[in-house]
Write a protein that binds this DNA or RNA. Structure first.
Ligand SMILES: [Mn+2]
Ligand SMILES: [Mn+2]
Ligand SMILES: [Zn+2]
Ligand SMILES: [Zn+2]
Lengths: 146, 146
DNA sequence: ACCTTAATTTATAATGATTCTAAACTGCTT
DNA sequence: AAGCAGTTTAGAATCATTATAAATTAAGGT
């Protein structure tokens, strides 16, 4: 007996899906259909830098039915739970980075693309202490005219 | 014979004004009333970090009659001529910096304030070369939760 | 001073990314 | 199965910024 497409879709998820589901649960986020689909797009392959609009379009290409508002909600929810980090590079839009570890960036102004630079590739010495408060993050952005 | 207020305003400008006027001319920008007034606000005292809205309000306080569109135009014209530099820190708005030399920043997230860090205060070694293109600028932003 | 012209200013509308609203829906616990 | 807080969503609203196009002005030549 052949299984129907409908049943196939509901079948127990393969490893990658389970991982994503666990990630959401661990973060305290309900693994809804929308979040699971977006998380799969975001975390399936290596590290990525996406915009809300970009992820929204990617979802459409993959026949993931999700609203733009939900993409924004998910990106922010993921960021709050440290599954993503937000990067301000261009005042016109926000980027979200699936690499939440310590690292820096090349920013290619022409294309708007971001590329990771591992933390150990740059020696940042003598970082001054702020006069008040605590350092939340140190951003290094090498802007490239390409 | 006493001079009228109208004539007083048209009188030869004091040193500070001349400097600003020369700066605009040297940059190839017509020293209009609006640009002169904004440049005076920007460059009169030490280095500053302003937003368009902030400068617009400051102009109002100083009875400088100028439109918001002109503030944006001037900030961008000044930036093109390297009298200012634009800083992207927060995706919601742009900052303009009167310090166009090599330096870095503290960003106080609570207040939205920026503070300069002289270039020599941070040792940036082993900066990797971009795969393509030429480095336009290296931004270092220390984000402080205050 | 007067002309001419291109640059500049400005009120106003438009844009575009992001956020808000409030109603419908759904995952999870009991 | 029921209840409910959490989530999704269409659509409206927001807000910084940019575009438009008409009025003004700086600069140079006469
Ligand atoms: Mn794909
Ligand atoms: Mn003042
Ligand atoms: Zn990254
Ligand atoms: Zn600065």
């Amino acid at each position: 007996m052949l299984h129907t497409p409908g049943i196939m879709r509901a079948k127990k998820a393969p490893t990658a899906d389970l991982t994503v589901l666990e990630r959401l649960r661990t973060a305290g986020l309900r693994p809804t259909r929308q979040r699971l689909a977006l998380a799969k797009l975001l975390f399936a392959q290596g590290h990525r830098h996406v915009t809300a609009e970009g992820l929204f379009n990617e979802a459409k290409e993959h026949r993931v039915d999700v609203s733009l508002a939900t993409v924004y909600n998910a990106l922010h929810d993921f960021t709050e739970k440290a599954l993503l980090r937000e990067i301000s590079i261009d005042s016109s839009r926000s980027y979200f980075d699936t690499n939440v570890g310590d690292h820096y960036h090349f920013y290619f102004e022409q294309s708007g693309r971001l590329q990771d630079i591992p933390a150990e590739r740059i020696a940042l010495a003598n970082l001054p202490e702020p006069p008040d408060g605590v350092v939340a993050r140190v951003d290094v952005i090498i802007r490239v005219k390409d």
